[in-house]
Computed example of a mutant assay.
Amino acid sequence: MGQAEQAPASRARARGSKPRSNPTPKAGRNLPAAIVVGLAMLIGVLGGLIFLPLGFVAVTTGFAVFGVWEIFRALEANGTRMPIIPVMVGTVAMPFAAYFGGLESLLFALLLSCVAVLLWRSVESPVGSANSIFAGVFALGWVPFFISFATLPLHTAGVMPALGLYPGGTVPAGAWQVAVMLLLVVSNDTFGYLVGASLGKHPMAPKISPKKSWEGFAGSVAGAMVIGVLACIFLLDRPWWVGVILALGTVAASTAGDLAESMVKRELGIKDMSSILPGHGGVMDRLDSIVFASPVAFVLFAVVSGA
């Protein structure tokens, strides 16, 4: 049996070639699948954002639901059972609360969701209740609350049509702001991956995410700055330096979100949250950057609104 297994390798060496293998890309992704899935998601999200805002809110909520479900499954596998029903209700409520009611409604929905988690868990067994409550509140704050900041600019722009269509067919500034934020997140991932995969030698956080390098981070900053400047000039009608500020803030937030999720996955002992998205892993493996970038971009747009 051992000689039969070694024979193909021996014949391969005799022909001067190496045995066939299936190497993993340096950055750990199936690049063609990642590009196809990423472009499909981007086109769908931007299309809904520009032409059907209520559809964009629904898609955002759907991503949040899948992300929270992945967190629930990962925590359950490690012995922590999150009160999924009140958490899911809050996950669905928060993006729509932000869209229809603004920041105050979003904060109120978060508060009610956390109280619901506490009350729901209080009627169950006290065993593991503290971890369960903390997990529920953590999931609510990490995913639906943060990602709801992507729907807030639509309310800020005064766009809450009942049927989801923009009145008069005019896309408001708030929708373009969200679109630019998404483009900056995508450029952060894309340029960071391309530069990191080819030139990355110095890891940023080797104990958390060994494949994330300083070279890749520099590529993310440079690429996002180019996209940010072009977006401010051609889409937002803002000074070019606003694009630089938005790019720096978005890249910093996206990188922090990526590292935060990597830290959670390392603590849970998993590589990906799931395998639902080919080339990407789970939904949370794609949302990790967006959930941190959304509130940061919202604040930055508010700060530079007078520029």
Rank of each mutant, 00 (worst) to 15 (best):
G282C: 14
L236K: 03
Y193T: 05
A98S: 11
G28F: 00
F149N: 11
F292I: 04
E215V: 02
M273D: 07
G16E: 08
E215A: 03
H155I: 14
I208Y: 01
K265C: 08
Q3H: 08
M1N: 06
T80G: 08
A93Y: 03
I227L: 14
L165S: 05
S125T: 15
A157G: 10
S105K: 14
A58S: 14
A64F: 07
K26F: 10
D285A: 05
L118M: 15
I84D: 12
L110V: 03
I50G: 04
L163R: 12
P210S: 01
L118S: 14
L287Q: 02
L268P: 00
S209P: 05
A260H: 04
A4C: 05
P53W: 00
L119W: 14
A197P: 05
A252N: 07
G243I: 11
M284C: 01
K18Y: 06
A252M: 09
P210E: 02
L39F: 00
G281S: 03
Q6H: 07
L39Y: 00
S17I: 15
V171P: 03
V229L: 10
A224Y: 05
D288F: 11
V283N: 08
V304Y: 01
M88D: 06
S305M: 02
V303D: 01
G257C: 00
A40R: 10
M94V: 01
K271G: 08
R29V: 11
F51D: 04
H202W: 05
A109M: 00
M88G: 09
V65K: 07
M225F: 09
S113Y: 02
G223F: 12
G243V: 12
I270W: 01
F145M: 15
A197F: 04
A27G: 07
P239A: 06
R13F: 06
E76W: 03
Y193C: 06
R73Y: 09
S10Q: 04
S10H: 00
V283T: 13
V57M: 15
L75S: 09
P19H: 09
R266M: 02
A33K: 13
L154N: 05
S274N: 03
A98W: 06
A307Y: 02
G136V: 14
A93N: 03
F66H: 13
F234S: 14
A162V: 14
A205L: 06
R121N: 12
V226Y: 07
R15W: 08
L75F: 14
G38E: 06
S105M: 15
G228N: 03
L103S: 00
A293T: 10
L54D: 11
V171D: 04
A307L: 03
G257F: 00
